[in-house]
Design a protein around this nucleic acid. Structure first.
Lengths: 392, 392
DNA sequence: CTTGTTTGTTCACTTCCCGGATGAACTCTC
DNA sequence: GAGAGTTCATCCGGGAAGTGAACAAACAAG
């Protein structure tokens, strides 16, 4: 028996090149594949034949136009088989649980959210999340066995090695390994990361930072964190806590922070703090939403407070821009869509970063809003599950 | 004519696997190569035959022991041909030129330095640098045709696209493309980067940060800059100016800086500033060296000033540590070897970074001292020249 | 001296890829 | 509507690469 390992590997690489090209560029003809891969049309035909035989790709029903728009025999287009299996994204925040079920191309098939009491114990919240995932599967009309994996968002930094929560924002979460817990409940692989990292992943894949290489995604809501993308990849740091810009010092005599330090930026600009600052001047009870409405309605006090908060964040971002020279800062989280806040960030970066770095960076609001984390969780699940997974 | 592109590439990858294995593991037998690469002995024999034919590898005179220590026919060992060709590293600083000639393994064969008048025009300095390279080649006993390329250090940020100097520190350098100029004089490929990036490369390769993944190298001398290594690779940023931590704002009403802003960290801690600060209290004329001597001799005033400078730098690094969570901060540049300064940096990081990030980071002095830039320039040249270069 | 082991090469064979020829399918022009 | 032109996909012959089996070479051990 003659086994030709290297040649088989070669053919496998070529098959991957084809599926990769189809994944990134969409359906195309064999001739296009030949041009795209540099292989000959003959070889492509043979490889495509294999891939059709194994069910990895299919010939589409409709035929395309010839290559250069002109005349010629219309090609038979081939496309990736719609991959079976779905993934789930779970976003657990301070006051909500949001769950999405998506196919392996990232198309969301079902999504639902529910509010969550802050004091809910971690295991209870995870029970609920698991129920919601099962509900989402039912809504999407997908059998539970089709679930390939899940990504999950936790609103706290995770220890890189143990995957446990370090400093819990919520009481019943400390030293819990949320990924392990959810894995046990859903019986599939679960990958967890924090909200800022997942938001960055989401805006990078299909949001405001599509295709950028160096991006700082800032999540400003109950807390403040950043997801830092460098060279197109998430930077997590030595112990997995990169991006914690909420704990940049802005005042030595400031409030004591949950991180153990005092005067952290987060103690100045987090949503609860801003609400507390504004409340005395207003009769009705303020919420983040109502504050954003007042901001849109040009309420002077709200604008001032949000602009100041933006400047404080921008001050910290300016230092980061000096160091990292990113091409975009994306403002996410509930407060990220405030124009006043964005203006404050912009002006502080212009003021405090060196001119070349400030000039190179765009400051844009996130496009995904509340859904950023859950979309990022889906992206994470797809990225991890896709590796080495067949069509099934 | 039948050209088999893919198969040729396959064979090329296999040849690379062999040379790579020989480079990392040293001389070995064909059978060992077969085990190491997973290819068959037959194929290895054929590939090795090719490589011997092209002169890339040679059969060593001495024969090795059979594989498992036991009996059997002794193998013929093959090894990489000692690579011909050398590279040059050129470090042009504010007051000096330093040049090294090294073989392709990074072993320095000749090194010399000379002082340079700050006002020297760029083209004159480059003339001198080129002469020194030729002198180094002579010292090393290497013919000029053996020079494969050069790396060079310029003490200013470079524009990523045009490779020109943006804000020249020195008068006669503005809008010059130093790499092009030196290429013209030496008639080989020249690659330029700034001092901090090259220092980082040097300490990463064979210095204090050997093998680390996420490192911030700080160069503190006439100016202040950082080379940021993330995931083992230099991070240059969107427009190539990442690492400019000297332009972090530390005082709104501070001195005006060459970057166009005011109150930059660099205006507070750069060596000339520290000397000016100390001079009034001392009779003799101070220099960086004499200040470092006084520091080592526990002079209270000097210690205080250097500690304060370290704290200022550490304050900025603390923010960077919060954002990037690096495993090491390496202090380079002429002031980098001051213990007082290092102590100031350490205490500021502990004070201002969040505890987890501060705990994860080592603060260490650079091991290469003045030679960091030129060693980094050599590394850069080797990295760029090695790609696709034969044996010659 | 025989046996056993490891090495490196030769040989027959399979797999893979390529260029050119061929047929197919469609558009454009006359 | 027929023919020319163009592009697509497949078939075919041939070259190139890799593999296992077999074999000679070189040495150690019994």
């Amino acid at each position: 028996m003659v086994t030709v390992g290297a040649l088989e590997r070669l053919r496998e690489t070529h098959r991957r090149a084809i599926t990769g090209l189809l994944a990134s560029e969409g359906p195309m003809s064999r001739a296009d594949l030949a041009r795209g891969t540099g292989l000959s049309r003959t070889t492509i035909s043979s490889l495509v034949g294999d891939l059709i035989g194994t069910g990895h790709i299919v010939e589409t029903a409709d035929r395309g136009r010839p290559h250069k728009g002109g005349s010629g025999r219309p090609p038979h287009l081939v496309a990736l088989s719609t991959p079976h299996g779905v993934v789930a994204g779970v976003d657990i925040g301070h006051g909500h649980i949001r769950v999405a079920v998506a196919d392996r191309a990232g198309l969301v098939l079902a999504e639902e959210s529910a509010s969550l009491d802050v004091d809910t114990h971690g295991t209870d919240a995870l029970d609920r999340a698991a129920r919601m995932v099962r509900g989402g599967l039912a809504t999407a009309g997908v059998d539970r066995t089709e679930l390939l994996g899940a990504g999950m968002c936790v609103p706290a930094p995770l220890d890189r090695r143990s995957a446990r929560i370090r400093t819990g924002i919520m009481p019943g979460w400390r030293h819990l390994s949320p990924a392990d817990e959810l894995r046990r409940r859903l019986d599939v692989a679960v990958f967890a990361d924090n909200d800022a990292n997942l938001g960055a992943l989401a805006e990078l894949g299909g949001g405001a930072a599509r295709g950028a290489a160096d991006v700082v995604y800032v999540k400003l809501a109950s807390g403040l964190g950043a997801g830092i993308v460098l060279g197109g990849r998430l930077h997590r740091g030595t112990s997995g806590i990169a991006g914690e810009i909420g704990h940049v010092q802005v005042g030595e005599d400031g409030l004591v922070c949950r991180c153990g330090n005092r005067g952290c930026l987060e103690t100045v600009v987090a949503a609860p703090r801003l609400l507390a600052l504004l409340q005395p001047a207003y009769d009705e009870e303020l919420s983040v939403d109502s504050v954003l409405e007042l901001d849109a309605a040009d309420d002077a006090g709200v604008r001032r407070v949000l602009d100041d908060a933006g400047r404080a964040v921008g001050r910290a971002l300016a230092d980061l821009c000096n160091g990292l020279n990113p091409e975009a800062v994306v403002l996410g989280g509930s407060l990220g869509r405030s124009a006043s806040l964005a203006a404050g960030v912009r002006s502080a970066i212009d003021r405090y970063a060196q001119p070349d770095a400030a000039g190179a960076v765009r400051v844009v609001p996130g496009e995904l809003g509340d859904r950023a984390e859950v979309v990022g969780a889906v992206s994470l699940a797809i990225a991890r599950v896709a590796v080495g997974q067949g069509v099934g």
